Amino acid sequence: MVSSICFLLWYYALSRVNSTKVSVSLLFVPVFALLFGWLQLDEALTVGLIIGVILIKVGVILVTVEKEEN
């Protein structure tokens, strides 16, 4: 269910924004699945899952930050 919502939002964003920028948003699918599982299914949030979310966020930041050219 969550994946289908994410992909619908992805296709909507793809029609409005450059595909390179939108493709990074696919990295957040596991984060939203974790969030909705916690909210709707009362799944436990473990330290490993939280570390995984932090690593995904750091990866997205590394991919999206533009490098300065000398």
Rank of each mutant, 00 (worst) to 15 (best):
Val17Leu: 04
Ala44Tyr: 04
Leu9Thr: 03
Thr46Asp: 13
Ile56Trp: 06
Leu39Ser: 06
Gly37Ser: 13
Trp38Arg: 06
Leu62Trp: 02
Val60Ala: 15
Glu68Arg: 14
Ile61Ala: 11
Tyr11Lys: 14
Val31Arg: 01
Leu41Ser: 15
Leu9Glu: 07
Leu41Gly: 14
Lys21Phe: 10
Thr20Trp: 09
Arg16Gln: 08
Ala33Asn: 15
Ala44Asn: 05
Val17Trp: 00
Glu68Gln: 12
Val31Asp: 03
Leu35Met: 04
Ser4Gly: 00
Ile51Asn: 06
Leu49Met: 12
Val17Phe: 06
Thr64Gly: 07
Val24Ser: 11
Ser25Met: 04
Val47His: 09
Ile61Phe: 06
Thr20His: 11
Trp10Asp: 08
Pro30Arg: 10
Leu39Ile: 04
Glu66His: 06
Thr46Pro: 02
Thr20Gly: 10
Thr46Tyr: 08
Asn70Gln: 11
Ser19Thr: 05
Ala13Gln: 09
Val22Tyr: 04
Leu27Asn: 15
Phe36Gln: 15
Val58Glu: 13
Trp38Met: 03
Phe7Ser: 09
Leu41Glu: 15
Val65Arg: 06
Val58Ala: 15
Glu69Asn: 14
Val2Gln: 15
Glu69Met: 13
Phe36Thr: 12
Val22Gly: 01
Glu69Pro: 04
Glu66Leu: 11
Asn18Gln: 00
Leu34Arg: 10
Leu55Gly: 07
Met1Arg: 14
Leu27Val: 04
Arg16Trp: 03
Phe28Gln: 10
Asn70Ile: 01
Cys6Lys: 01
Val17Thr: 00
Leu41Tyr: 03
Phe28Ala: 14
Glu68Met: 11
Ile50Trp: 02
Val60Gln: 15
Gly59Phe: 05
Phe36Ile: 08
Ile5Phe: 03
Leu39Ala: 13
Leu9Gln: 08
Val2Ala: 15
Gly59Gln: 15
Tyr12Ser: 13
Ser15Asp: 08
Leu55Cys: 13
Ser4Tyr: 00
Leu8Thr: 07
Tyr12Gly: 07
Ser4Phe: 00
Leu9Trp: 01
Thr64His: 01
Leu62Ser: 12
Leu27Met: 15
Trp38Asn: 06
Leu26Phe: 03
Ser25Arg: 01
Val63Trp: 02
Val60Asn: 14
Lys67Glu: 08
Ile54Trp: 03
Ser15Cys: 10
Gly37His: 05
Thr64Gln: 11
Pro30Asn: 10
Leu39Cys: 08
Val22Glu: 02
Ser3Pro: 12
Ala44Gly: 07
Ser19Arg: 07
Lys21Glu: 05
Gly48Gln: 07
Gly59Ala: 15
Val60Ile: 05
Ile5Glu: 12
Ser25Leu: 05
Glu66Ser: 13
Val31Trp: 00
Val31Cys: 05
Phe36Lys: 14
Arg16Pro: 00
Asn70Met: 09
Leu62Thr: 11
Trp38Leu: 03
Leu39Asp: 08
Ser4Val: 00
Val31Lys: 00
Ile50Asn: 03
Ile51Trp: 00
Glu43Phe: 07
Ala44Pro: 03
Ile5Ala: 13
Ile56Phe: 02
Thr20Asp: 10
Trp10Glu: 09
Val60Gly: 12
Phe7Glu: 12
Val47Asp: 12
Val47Gln: 12
Ser25Cys: 03
Gly37Asn: 11
Leu39Tyr: 07
Ser4Asn: 02
Gly52Asn: 06
Ile5Leu: 14
Trp38Lys: 05
Leu26Val: 09
Ile50Tyr: 01
Ala33Gly: 14
